[in-house]
């Protein structure tokens, strides 16, 4: 199978295309409604926590955000493998991987910020060297690097292959980092934060709000992924048509000289 890209070889101009479809518009309406409900439940209706007080409300954005980021990085890994596997090689997989990583980095950043704010209120510190926290920070930096590699330039195939290999190396790297931080942590730190508070019984409404948050954020991920993937495809088309336009211009120039 050749590595030519079927999606970008169409002749229609990128300007005529939009990234929205009836499906994503419908999805967008559902997300807006769900988000409104989440805000109402999370900020006004759900009760304050016995131990954490009002700061528990940060969780309704923090937990779904972290979930979304992890989901996004898993999707990046799977689509990168799909690109590298010859039978499923398509630049669409590469764009899904890239779009997913972008969304993932954004939400990992959001969940790191909300998490440290929550930690400041609840634990009295912005940061602890907990294995999960530290691995999350490494994930964040690793995928920032991944996005930087995507921006290195070259042909679409070069970008796709380079970044796909890098994404698979990240799959190898992250468990190693997690394992070594855990080893380092258990020997050098008395108490771990991760175990604290997990056996606490959660209020029904709080649990529902949290699940609603996860569901709405997941839908939002799908929406963002679809749009970003399509806009990346348009970017690639623009690149290709830019080359075509330059060729046409040169040909016209040459004809002008010949005449």
């Amino acid at each position: 199978m050749t590595t030519t890209d079927t999606n970008t070889s169409t002749n229609s101009s990128p300007r005529d295309r939009v990234t929205g479809t009836p499906f994503t518009r419908g999805l967008g309406v559902v997300i807006l409604a769900g988000m409104t409900l989440l805000i109402i439940l999370g900020i006004f209706v759900s009760p304050a926590d016995v131990n954490q007080g009002e700061s528990v409300r940060i969780m309704y954005a923090h937990v779904p955000g972290a979930w979304l980021a992890y989901l996004a990085f898993v999707v990046t890994g799977i689509s990168s493998a799909a690109y590298l596997w010859k039978r499923t090689r398509s630049l669409t997989w590469d764009r899904i991987a890239g779009a997913s990583a972008e969304v993932g980095v954004l939400f990992m950043g959001i969940s790191l910020v909300t998490g440290s704010l929550w930690g400041r209120i609840t634990w009295g510190t912005y940061w602890t060297w907990d294995a999960r926290l530290t691995t999350t920070a490494f994930l964040f930096v690793t995928y920032i690097g991944y996005l930087a590699v995507r921006g290195l330039g070259g042909t679409h195939q070069q970008r796709a292959r380079r970044s796909a290999v890098l994404a698979l190396l990240a799959v190898l790297e992250i468990p190693l980092v997690h394992f070594s931080v855990q080893l380092w942590n258990t020997l050098h730190q008395e108490a771990s934060v991760a175990g604290r508070g997990t056996d606490v019984e959660m209020d029904g409404l709080m649990l529902f709000t949290l699940f609603l948050g996860v569901a709405v954020f997941t839908l939002m991920y799908v929406w963002l992924l679809l749009h970003r993937q399509r806009s990346l495809a348009l970017d690639d088309m623009l690149d290709d048509s830019g080359l075509d336009n330059a060729l046409t211009a040169r040909r016209a120039e040459a004809q002008g000289v010949a005449r």
Binding site: F138, V141, I144, A148, V149, L166, E173, V181
Partner: peptide
């Protein structure tokens, strides 16, 4: 780019 890619991996 190299430090950004390399340092997290060698942690």
């Amino acid at each position: 780019l190299l430090p950004l890619l390399l340092l997290p991996v060698v942690a």
